[in-house]
Design a binder for these strands. Structure first.
Lengths: 117, 117
DNA sequence: CTGACTAGTTAGGCATACAATCTAGTGTGC
DNA sequence: GCACACTAGATTGTATGCCTAACTAGTCAG
C-alpha cells in the first residue's frame, strides 16, 4: 500500500497498539518498526513520534531495550515485549476491536450518504 | 450497551465523525446527541468535549445551529448538517473504514497472543 | 424555596502527533 | 580526506482536542 496520510488524531492511541504488535513477532529496532508500520498502511510514522513512544513504552515496563552493533551502519537499539507488554497488547486489541465495532455500527454505511444527496 | 470508558485518545478524531453521523438523520440538539452516542456504545461524551466540538464544527461550516424553545425545559440549540458537513462525513467515513481495516490487518487476531503465552 | 433534571458554556490541564533540528555510524565516489 | 547518502536514534516546541471542573439557566415536583 502506498503512503496514506491518516489524520494524526486517528493515529493517536492506536499507534501504541501497532508498535506493540510489531514487536510481537520478536525483537526489532525503531527504524525497522517504522518501516514495517509504513508497509502495513499506517503511513510514515515520524521519528519524533516513534522514539518518544518507544521511550514511554519502556518507562511503563511494556518493552525492554538492548543495544547491538548495526549491520554496516550505526548501532541499533533493539526493543522487545515484556510479559506486561504482551498482556497489554492482548487486552487493548480486544478493546480496540470492540471500539471499532461500536463506531462501525454508529457510522453510516459507505455509499448511504451519497445516495441520499 | 452499558457505559464503557474508551481511552480518550481513541475518541479523539472519530468523535467528530460520530457527531456528524448523529446529525445525518436530521436536526437535533447537543444533549440528545450525547445520549444517542452513549446508547450507541461510545460511552459518556462529556459536555466539556461535545459542546466545543459542536462549536468547531459550526466554525468550520460543517453544521448550522438554531435556537428553539425546550419542551418543558430550557431552550435547545438545534444543529443540522450543512452540505459541506454531509460531504465531509461521507469522505471521512470511507477513510475511517480504510484506516480501521489497515489496523485490523496489522494487529494480532484476538486470542493469538493468549495462546502463545 | 429546594432539589433534580434538562440544556448549554467555558477555561485550564494533560498527553501526544507533528515539524524541525540535531547527533552519529558506515559506505561510496572523487 | 572530504562530501554525500543512507542508516539509526534523540530531543524540543507547537498545535490539538479530550478531560476535569466549574458555572449559568429553565422547568418541574415536593
Amino acid at each position: 500500500m502506498t503512503a496514506v496520510k491518516w489524520p494524526g488524531e486517528w493515529l493517536r492511541g492506536v499507534l501504541q497498539l501497532c508498535v506493540l504488535s510489531a514487536l510481537e513477532a520478536g525483537p526489532t529496532y525503531g527504524y525497522a518498526i517504522g518501516q514495517r508500520l509504513e508497509e502495513a498502511g499506517l503511513g510514515t510514522v515520524k521519528g519524533g513520534t516513534l522514539y518518544p513512544l518507544l521511550g514511554r513504552l519502556e518507562s511503563d515496563g511494556l518493552v525492554r531495550s538492548t543495544w547491538a552493533a548495526g549491520e554496516g551502519g550505526p548501532g541499533r537499539k533493539y526493543f522487545q515485549l515484556s510479559d506486561a507488554g504482551r498482556r497489554e497488547l492482548h487486552d487493548r486489541v480486544l478493546m480496540w476491536r470492540q471500539f471499532t465495532a461500536a463506531t462501525a455500527l454508529l457510522l453510516p454505511a459507505a455509499g448511504t450518504t451519497e445516495e441520499e444527496s
